[in-house]
Computed example of a mutant assay.
Amino acid sequence: MRYSEFGTSKLPAQQQLEAWQAWYGRVFDTSTLHAGDDGFTAHARAWNLDGFALNHVTAPGLSVLRTKTLLRREPVDHWAITLGRRSVTWLDTGSTTLTAPAGVPFVVSLGQTMKNEREADDRIQLYLSRDSFHGIAPLLDACCARPLQPAGGALLADYMRVLLRNLPTLDETDALRLTDATRAMIAACLAPSAQRLGEARPLINVTLMEKVRRAIRRHLRSSALGPELICREAATSRSQLYRLLEGEGGVGHYIQKQRLSEAFSMLCDLPATTTIAAIAEMLCFADSSSFARAFRREFGVSPSDVRDAARAGLPPIPAGAGAHEAERGSFVACLRGAPSLAGAALDHRA
Protein backbone atom coordinates (compact mmCIF):
# COMPACT_ATOMS: atom_id res chain seq x y z
CA MET A 1 0.00 0.00 0.00
CA ARG A 2 1.45 3.36 -1.05
CA TYR A 3 0.38 6.64 0.51
CA SER A 4 0.74 10.09 -1.01
CA GLU A 5 -0.38 13.53 0.11
CA PHE A 6 -0.50 16.97 -1.46
CA GLY A 7 -1.74 20.32 -0.21
CA THR A 8 -1.55 23.95 -1.26
CA SER A 9 -1.94 25.70 2.11
CA LYS A 10 1.80 26.37 2.55
CA LEU A 11 2.21 27.92 -0.90
CA PRO A 12 1.78 31.63 -1.67
CA ALA A 13 -1.88 32.35 -2.48
CA GLN A 14 -1.12 33.28 -6.10
CA GLN A 15 0.55 29.87 -6.71
CA GLN A 16 -2.03 27.61 -5.07
CA LEU A 17 -4.44 27.07 -7.96
CA GLU A 18 -1.63 26.49 -10.46
CA ALA A 19 -0.04 23.90 -8.17
CA TRP A 20 -3.39 22.10 -7.80
CA GLN A 21 -3.90 22.11 -11.57
CA ALA A 22 -0.42 20.65 -12.07
CA TRP A 23 -1.12 17.89 -9.52
CA TYR A 24 -4.12 16.63 -11.54
CA GLY A 25 -3.01 17.90 -14.94
CA ARG A 26 -2.25 14.58 -16.65
CA VAL A 27 -5.78 13.27 -16.01
CA PHE A 28 -8.06 16.31 -15.50
CA ASP A 29 -8.22 19.96 -16.49
CA THR A 30 -9.36 21.86 -13.41
CA SER A 31 -10.44 25.46 -12.93
CA THR A 32 -11.93 27.35 -10.02
CA LEU A 33 -15.58 28.33 -10.03
CA HIS A 34 -14.77 31.60 -8.27
CA ALA A 35 -11.89 33.26 -10.05
CA GLY A 36 -12.01 36.38 -7.90
CA ASP A 37 -11.21 34.53 -4.67
CA ASP A 38 -7.80 34.92 -3.06
CA GLY A 39 -5.86 31.69 -3.10
CA PHE A 40 -6.96 28.11 -3.51
CA THR A 41 -6.47 26.11 -0.32
CA ALA A 42 -6.92 22.40 -1.09
CA HIS A 43 -5.70 19.08 0.23
CA ALA A 44 -5.55 15.54 -1.18
CA ARG A 45 -4.64 12.20 0.36
CA ALA A 46 -4.37 8.96 -1.64
CA TRP A 47 -3.90 5.31 -0.72
CA ASN A 48 -2.88 3.09 -3.67
CA LEU A 49 -3.63 -0.57 -3.14
CA ASP A 50 -3.69 -3.69 -5.27
CA GLY A 51 -5.89 -2.72 -8.21
CA PHE A 52 -7.63 0.30 -6.73
CA ALA A 53 -7.01 3.57 -4.92
CA LEU A 54 -8.90 5.64 -2.39
CA ASN A 55 -8.61 9.44 -2.49
CA HIS A 56 -9.80 11.99 0.05
CA VAL A 57 -9.97 15.51 -1.39
CA THR A 58 -10.95 18.78 0.26
CA ALA A 59 -11.07 21.75 -2.11
CA PRO A 60 -12.98 24.93 -3.01
CA GLY A 61 -15.52 25.03 -5.84
CA LEU A 62 -14.16 23.43 -9.02
CA SER A 63 -14.91 22.67 -12.63
CA VAL A 64 -13.25 19.42 -13.77
CA LEU A 65 -12.85 18.30 -17.39
CA ARG A 66 -11.78 14.99 -18.92
CA THR A 67 -11.23 15.93 -22.57
CA LYS A 68 -10.39 14.00 -25.73
CA THR A 69 -6.89 15.48 -25.58
CA LEU A 70 -6.43 14.12 -22.06
CA LEU A 71 -7.83 10.74 -23.10
CA ARG A 72 -5.13 10.51 -25.78
CA ARG A 73 -2.40 11.83 -23.49
CA GLU A 74 -3.30 9.65 -20.49
CA PRO A 75 -5.57 6.80 -21.67
CA VAL A 76 -6.39 5.49 -18.20
CA ASP A 77 -9.90 4.02 -18.24
CA HIS A 78 -10.48 3.26 -14.55
CA TRP A 79 -13.91 3.60 -13.04
CA ALA A 80 -14.25 6.32 -10.44
CA ILE A 81 -16.84 6.22 -7.66
CA THR A 82 -17.22 9.62 -6.01
CA LEU A 83 -18.97 10.55 -2.78
CA GLY A 84 -19.41 14.28 -2.26
CA ARG A 85 -20.05 14.89 1.42
CA ARG A 86 -21.05 18.57 1.43
CA SER A 87 -21.91 19.66 -2.10
CA VAL A 88 -24.12 18.75 -5.05
CA THR A 89 -22.21 17.57 -8.14
CA TRP A 90 -23.38 18.33 -11.67
CA LEU A 91 -22.02 15.88 -14.28
CA ASP A 92 -22.19 15.91 -18.09
CA THR A 93 -20.70 13.08 -20.21
CA GLY A 94 -21.96 14.39 -23.54
CA SER A 95 -24.60 11.67 -23.79
CA THR A 96 -26.13 12.02 -20.33
CA THR A 97 -26.29 14.40 -17.39
CA LEU A 98 -26.53 13.67 -13.69
CA THR A 99 -27.10 15.75 -10.57
CA ALA A 100 -25.73 13.93 -7.52
CA PRO A 101 -26.74 15.32 -4.12
CA ALA A 102 -24.28 15.37 -1.23
CA GLY A 103 -24.09 11.94 0.37
CA VAL A 104 -25.03 10.04 -2.82
CA PRO A 105 -22.14 8.27 -4.63
CA PHE A 106 -21.98 8.13 -8.42
CA VAL A 107 -19.93 6.14 -10.94
CA VAL A 108 -18.05 7.43 -14.01
CA SER A 109 -15.55 5.90 -16.40
CA LEU A 110 -12.30 7.77 -17.02
CA GLY A 111 -12.35 6.24 -20.48
CA GLN A 112 -14.93 8.81 -21.65
CA THR A 113 -15.05 12.58 -21.84
CA MET A 114 -16.90 14.37 -19.08
CA LYS A 115 -17.33 17.60 -17.20
CA ASN A 116 -18.38 18.06 -13.61
CA GLU A 117 -18.84 21.05 -11.36
CA ARG A 118 -19.37 21.39 -7.65
CA GLU A 119 -18.97 23.92 -4.90
CA ALA A 120 -16.51 23.57 -2.01
CA ASP A 121 -16.55 19.95 -0.92
CA ASP A 122 -15.00 17.13 1.05
CA ARG A 123 -14.96 14.10 -1.27
CA ILE A 124 -14.10 10.42 -1.06
CA GLN A 125 -13.21 8.72 -4.34
CA LEU A 126 -12.54 5.12 -5.30
CA TYR A 127 -10.53 4.54 -8.49
CA LEU A 128 -10.97 0.97 -9.75
CA SER A 129 -8.71 -0.55 -12.41
CA ARG A 130 -10.41 -2.57 -15.14
CA ASP A 131 -7.90 -5.40 -14.75
CA SER A 132 -8.75 -5.93 -11.08
CA PHE A 133 -12.49 -5.25 -11.33
CA HIS A 134 -13.24 -6.83 -14.73
CA GLY A 135 -15.46 -9.43 -13.05
CA ILE A 136 -18.03 -6.73 -12.19
CA ALA A 137 -17.44 -4.57 -15.28
CA PRO A 138 -21.04 -4.94 -16.55
CA LEU A 139 -22.38 -3.71 -13.21
CA LEU A 140 -20.08 -0.68 -13.11
CA ASP A 141 -20.68 0.23 -16.77
CA ALA A 142 -24.45 -0.06 -16.31
CA CYS A 143 -24.32 2.41 -13.41
CA CYS A 144 -22.10 5.03 -15.04
CA ALA A 145 -23.61 8.52 -14.75
CA ARG A 146 -26.91 7.11 -13.49
CA PRO A 147 -28.55 7.52 -10.09
CA LEU A 148 -27.82 4.55 -7.83
CA GLN A 149 -30.67 2.77 -6.10
CA PRO A 150 -31.22 4.52 -2.73
CA ALA A 151 -30.52 1.50 -0.51
CA GLY A 152 -27.44 0.42 -2.46
CA GLY A 153 -26.17 3.99 -2.77
CA ALA A 154 -26.52 4.60 0.97
CA LEU A 155 -24.71 1.34 1.79
CA LEU A 156 -21.89 2.16 -0.66
CA ALA A 157 -21.53 5.66 0.83
CA ASP A 158 -21.27 4.15 4.32
CA TYR A 159 -18.66 1.65 3.13
CA MET A 160 -16.56 4.42 1.56
CA ARG A 161 -16.61 6.28 4.89
CA VAL A 162 -15.56 3.10 6.69
CA LEU A 163 -12.67 2.63 4.24
CA LEU A 164 -11.46 6.19 4.76
CA ARG A 165 -11.62 5.81 8.53
CA ASN A 166 -9.76 2.47 8.61
CA LEU A 167 -7.20 2.63 5.80
CA PRO A 168 -4.67 4.76 7.71
CA THR A 169 -4.39 2.09 10.41
CA LEU A 170 -4.22 -1.04 8.22
CA ASP A 171 -0.97 -2.95 7.93
CA GLU A 172 0.25 -4.36 4.61
CA THR A 173 -1.17 -7.84 5.24
CA ASP A 174 -4.66 -6.55 5.96
CA ALA A 175 -4.50 -4.12 3.02
CA LEU A 176 -3.89 -7.02 0.63
CA ARG A 177 -7.33 -8.42 1.51
CA LEU A 178 -9.12 -5.21 0.55
CA THR A 179 -9.40 -5.62 -3.22
CA ASP A 180 -11.58 -8.72 -3.09
CA ALA A 181 -13.55 -7.36 -0.16
CA THR A 182 -14.21 -4.08 -1.95
CA ARG A 183 -15.18 -5.87 -5.16
CA ALA A 184 -17.73 -7.95 -3.26
CA MET A 185 -19.15 -4.92 -1.47
CA ILE A 186 -19.49 -2.82 -4.64
CA ALA A 187 -21.26 -5.66 -6.46
CA ALA A 188 -23.71 -6.08 -3.58
CA CYS A 189 -24.45 -2.34 -3.57
CA LEU A 190 -24.82 -1.83 -7.33
CA ALA A 191 -26.88 -4.95 -8.09
CA PRO A 192 -28.10 -6.71 -4.95
CA SER A 193 -28.80 -10.45 -5.20
CA ALA A 194 -28.87 -13.23 -2.63
CA GLN A 195 -25.43 -14.43 -3.72
CA ARG A 196 -23.80 -11.01 -3.77
CA LEU A 197 -25.32 -9.96 -0.48
CA GLY A 198 -24.15 -13.24 1.05
CA GLU A 199 -20.59 -12.70 -0.17
CA ALA A 200 -20.53 -9.16 1.20
CA ARG A 201 -22.44 -9.89 4.42
CA PRO A 202 -19.44 -9.59 6.80
CA LEU A 203 -18.60 -6.15 5.40
CA ILE A 204 -22.25 -5.09 5.35
CA ASN A 205 -22.47 -5.97 9.04
CA VAL A 206 -19.29 -4.04 9.84
CA THR A 207 -20.57 -1.03 7.90
CA LEU A 208 -23.88 -1.12 9.78
CA MET A 209 -22.01 -1.60 13.06
CA GLU A 210 -20.08 1.62 12.39
CA LYS A 211 -23.39 3.49 12.01
CA VAL A 212 -24.74 1.95 15.20
CA ARG A 213 -21.57 2.84 17.11
CA ARG A 214 -21.75 6.45 15.93
CA ALA A 215 -25.44 6.71 16.88
CA ILE A 216 -24.76 5.34 20.36
CA ARG A 217 -21.71 7.55 20.91
CA ARG A 218 -23.74 10.65 20.01
CA HIS A 219 -26.34 9.88 22.67
CA LEU A 220 -24.35 8.27 25.50
CA ARG A 221 -25.52 10.96 27.94
CA SER A 222 -29.17 10.75 26.94
CA SER A 223 -31.65 8.69 28.94
CA ALA A 224 -33.58 8.22 25.69
CA LEU A 225 -30.81 6.07 24.22
CA GLY A 226 -32.32 2.70 23.31
CA PRO A 227 -33.27 0.49 20.35
CA GLU A 228 -35.82 2.91 18.90
CA LEU A 229 -33.42 5.85 18.79
CA ILE A 230 -30.56 3.71 17.42
CA CYS A 231 -32.74 2.19 14.68
CA ARG A 232 -33.91 5.63 13.62
CA GLU A 233 -30.41 7.14 13.43
CA ALA A 234 -28.71 4.09 11.91
CA ALA A 235 -31.58 3.52 9.43
CA THR A 236 -31.99 -0.12 10.37
CA SER A 237 -34.75 -2.36 11.68
CA ARG A 238 -35.09 -3.50 15.27
CA SER A 239 -34.63 -7.16 14.28
CA GLN A 240 -31.48 -6.31 12.33
CA LEU A 241 -30.11 -4.34 15.29
CA TYR A 242 -30.78 -7.23 17.68
CA ARG A 243 -29.01 -9.69 15.34
CA LEU A 244 -26.06 -7.33 14.94
CA LEU A 245 -25.53 -6.90 18.69
CA GLU A 246 -26.40 -10.45 19.73
CA GLY A 247 -22.70 -11.34 19.94
CA GLU A 248 -22.13 -8.30 22.16
CA GLY A 249 -24.62 -9.49 24.78
CA GLY A 250 -27.57 -7.53 23.41
CA VAL A 251 -28.42 -3.88 22.86
CA GLY A 252 -28.60 -2.88 26.51
CA HIS A 253 -25.31 -4.58 27.37
CA TYR A 254 -23.55 -2.96 24.42
CA ILE A 255 -24.83 0.51 25.39
CA GLN A 256 -23.60 -0.02 28.95
CA LYS A 257 -20.16 -1.08 27.67
CA GLN A 258 -19.91 2.08 25.59
CA ARG A 259 -20.94 4.20 28.58
CA LEU A 260 -18.36 2.48 30.76
CA SER A 261 -15.69 3.09 28.14
CA GLU A 262 -16.65 6.77 28.08
CA ALA A 263 -16.55 6.86 31.88
CA PHE A 264 -13.05 5.41 31.81
CA SER A 265 -11.88 8.22 29.48
CA MET A 266 -13.59 10.84 31.62
CA LEU A 267 -11.92 9.55 34.79
CA CYS A 268 -8.55 9.82 33.09
CA ASP A 269 -9.13 13.23 31.54
CA LEU A 270 -11.54 15.26 33.65
CA PRO A 271 -10.30 17.35 36.59
CA ALA A 272 -10.61 15.70 39.99
CA THR A 273 -13.31 18.22 40.91
CA THR A 274 -15.77 16.23 38.78
CA THR A 275 -16.91 13.55 41.19
CA ILE A 276 -17.35 9.89 40.31
CA ALA A 277 -21.01 10.23 41.26
CA ALA A 278 -21.38 13.11 38.78
CA ILE A 279 -19.81 11.03 35.99
CA ALA A 280 -22.19 8.18 36.78
CA GLU A 281 -25.16 10.55 36.58
CA MET A 282 -23.94 12.11 33.30
CA LEU A 283 -23.84 8.64 31.74
CA CYS A 284 -27.31 7.67 32.98
CA PHE A 285 -26.39 5.10 35.62
CA ALA A 286 -29.01 4.72 38.38
CA ASP A 287 -26.53 5.58 41.13
CA SER A 288 -22.81 5.60 41.89
CA SER A 289 -22.90 2.16 43.52
CA SER A 290 -24.35 0.38 40.46
CA PHE A 291 -21.92 2.32 38.30
CA ALA A 292 -18.92 1.22 40.42
CA ARG A 293 -20.02 -2.45 40.31
CA ALA A 294 -20.47 -2.42 36.53
CA PHE A 295 -17.15 -0.60 36.10
CA ARG A 296 -15.25 -3.19 38.16
CA ARG A 297 -16.86 -6.09 36.25
CA GLU A 298 -15.81 -4.51 32.94
CA PHE A 299 -12.28 -3.38 33.77
CA GLY A 300 -11.26 -5.28 36.88
CA VAL A 301 -10.56 -2.08 38.82
CA SER A 302 -12.71 0.52 40.54
CA PRO A 303 -13.39 4.02 39.20
CA SER A 304 -11.37 5.51 42.06
CA ASP A 305 -8.41 3.25 41.14
CA VAL A 306 -8.48 4.65 37.61
CA ARG A 307 -8.64 8.23 38.83
CA ASP A 308 -5.81 7.71 41.32
CA ALA A 309 -3.63 6.05 38.65
CA ALA A 310 -4.32 8.89 36.20
CA ARG A 311 -3.24 11.45 38.80
CA ALA A 312 0.00 9.54 39.36
CA GLY A 313 0.64 9.09 35.63
CA LEU A 314 0.39 5.30 35.89
CA PRO A 315 -1.40 2.91 33.52
CA PRO A 316 -4.75 2.09 35.17
CA ILE A 317 -5.25 -1.31 33.50
CA PRO A 318 -2.70 -4.04 32.68
CA ALA A 319 -1.51 -3.79 29.07
CA GLY A 320 -3.69 -5.71 26.66
CA ALA A 321 -6.83 -5.83 28.79
CA GLY A 322 -9.91 -5.51 26.63
CA ALA A 323 -7.95 -5.84 23.38
CA HIS A 324 -10.07 -8.76 22.15
CA GLU A 325 -13.26 -6.86 22.88
CA ALA A 326 -11.99 -3.80 21.04
CA GLU A 327 -11.21 -5.76 17.88
CA ARG A 328 -14.28 -7.98 17.72
CA GLY A 329 -16.66 -6.72 15.09
CA SER A 330 -14.10 -4.28 13.73
CA PHE A 331 -13.19 -3.70 10.08
CA VAL A 332 -9.80 -5.39 10.55
CA ALA A 333 -11.36 -8.38 12.30
CA CYS A 334 -13.77 -8.72 9.38
CA LEU A 335 -10.94 -8.74 6.84
CA ARG A 336 -9.00 -11.32 8.80
CA GLY A 337 -11.93 -13.53 9.71
CA ALA A 338 -13.93 -13.70 6.49
CA PRO A 339 -12.12 -16.07 4.11
CA SER A 340 -15.01 -15.84 1.63
CA LEU A 341 -13.90 -12.29 0.90
CA ALA A 342 -10.34 -13.30 0.07
CA GLY A 343 -11.04 -14.71 -3.34
CA ALA A 344 -14.74 -14.39 -3.83
CA ALA A 345 -15.66 -15.50 -7.34
CA LEU A 346 -18.43 -13.03 -8.03
CA ASP A 347 -21.23 -13.94 -10.36
CA HIS A 348 -21.52 -10.87 -12.57
CA ARG A 349 -24.12 -12.21 -14.94
CA ALA A 350 -27.28 -10.18 -15.40
Rank of each mutant, 00 (worst) to 15 (best):
D77N: 15
A59T: 06
E327N: 09
R123T: 14
L176Y: 04
L241C: 12
A350S: 06
S302P: 07
D92W: 05
K10C: 03
F106E: 11
A188D: 08
F299G: 01
G247M: 02
W90A: 11
I255P: 12
A42M: 13
V301L: 10
S330P: 10
G152R: 04
T30W: 06
W47N: 01
A46T: 09
A187S: 10
I204T: 12
T207Y: 01
A53M: 11
C268Y: 00
L220K: 14
R214C: 10
S239H: 04
L126A: 05
L267F: 03
S31H: 09
G320Q: 02
M1D: 08
L155T: 14
S239W: 00
L62S: 07
V301I: 14
E210N: 11
F264K: 09
L314F: 09
L91P: 14
R123V: 15
E228N: 12
A333S: 11
E210D: 11
A224Q: 15
G94P: 12
A338P: 00
F264E: 04
I317R: 12
I230W: 02
C334Y: 00
T69I: 06
T32E: 04
W20F: 07
Y24V: 05
F133N: 13
A294Q: 13
A80Q: 13
T99E: 13
Q16A: 00
T58V: 15
I204S: 01
G343N: 05
